[in-house]
Design a protein around this nucleic acid. Sequence first.
RNA 1: GGAGACGUAUCGAAGUGGUCAUAACGAGCCGCACUCGAAAUGCGGUCGCCCGUUCCGGGCGCGUGGGUUCGAAUCCCACCGUCUCCGCCA
Length: 428
Amino acid sequence: MLDIKRIREDYEGSKAGVERRLKGSFGIENIPALDEKRRDLLAKVEAMKATQNKVSREIPKMKKAGEDTTAVMAEMKELSQSIKELDVEVSQVETEIRDCLLGIPNIPADFVQEGEDDSANVELRRFMEPTKFDFEPKAHWDIGADLNILDWERAGKIAGTRFTIYKGLGARLERAIENFMLDLHTIDQDYLEILPPFMVNRTAMTGTGQLPKFEEDMFYVPQKDFFLIPTAEVPVTNMLGGEIIPEAELPIHYTAYTPCFRAEAGSAGRDTRGLIRQHQFNKVELVKFTRPEDSWDELEALTADAEAVLQILGIPYRVVRLSTGDLGFSSACTYDIEVWMPSYGRYVEISSCSNFLDFQARRANIRFRRTEGGKPEYVHTLNGSGLAIGRTTAAVLENFQQADGTVVIPEPLRKYMGVDVITKNEKY
RNA sequence: GGAGACGUAUCGAAGUGGUCAUAACGAGCCGCACUCGAAAUGCGGUCGCCCGUUCCGGGCGCGUGGGUUCGAAUCCCACCGUCUCCGCCA
């Protein structure tokens, strides 16, 4: 959520900032009139309340002195009625303002390049060169099927398309990657491991920006008005909602493994095969809460922490900065880490690292207080995948496949796997 | 799922329709005094949000949202959460 004071004080600048996203209309033009209306109403109703309070304090005194209060009380009854009516108007306007503000995306950072979509993304760096093979490499869905470790047919039978059953060393590979990532982030990088709920309420979904605009992308549990989390970002960021954090605790670094659930509405026909786009997938997430002055450095560090996974595994990747048009709703700046995927013949997103500045903190009301006193201020929030596990599994299968159809396990994963090579699962 | 109790400032907790919610009373924390220093003691200070540009003034907030009333922490309704007992359960 943008700061309404900022819109009030620099309307043209705020509007121009949001419009750098190029796509869509944002409704910011409704704010100034609503804001003015609200302040007019407030001034009126608060003056009336001041009178009401004053007189109410005098009534008991009058009664004590034996005076007749009937006339005053009749007057106050009218005033009270007017106040109620105005209060309703105020809260209507405030709801309108909030609804409007909740629908306005974050302003991209100044240095983020303008562009319509991902074609304007800028490559910042690469690690290793794309993997070369002296045989015809297979896609991971064929590798998985041939080794009998990934089973899409039966997943379709019990759930539907965009689901996968992992079997044998396939399941163990997913679990090994998960544990490897969590150990890296918690032991070598000082993140605190969190295991959160996989369902959250509406307030949490609004805090990080998924609601109200993107309800169709979510799986919903009507009995309890819960949503299945689309990313650990939602529970892990909102867990500090409404809190005032002592400055000494910042920065806070959390990491969490969760499954993620996405309806993938609107992506029919895209990435229909393999592990790339699933209704349910596993992910390790990194989440940070920082002082405003630290968030840009923390974004660089967070991205580096996610990159470390691929560096240690030895898988080629590149880092790009998203253009304004490709930026997520809540983000001011996002770096995508894209892994080399031989079956696609290109780099594929495996992590998205963003600085939200105070956009989420304002929605979720997450603040901190400086040790030197003063008013609470909003923290900055950041997050990034550290990494998507399913896509990492796919990348390992494809980049480490051998001519004989087996897959060699990258050395750092072997202690988690217990084997060096994945050979065909012969069991039913 | 059934029954009951409870949600007040950083924590404990009093207040059960106005006349101390600028929150009693404890504790914590921050100053100051006493002290060589500390402890103990004494004195003072210590929540958030909104509006009016500041000093300052006004409004709102006792889990959340409604209602009754001239006036609600206090009465009524709904919801959320916590705890205890019973049932059920991995």
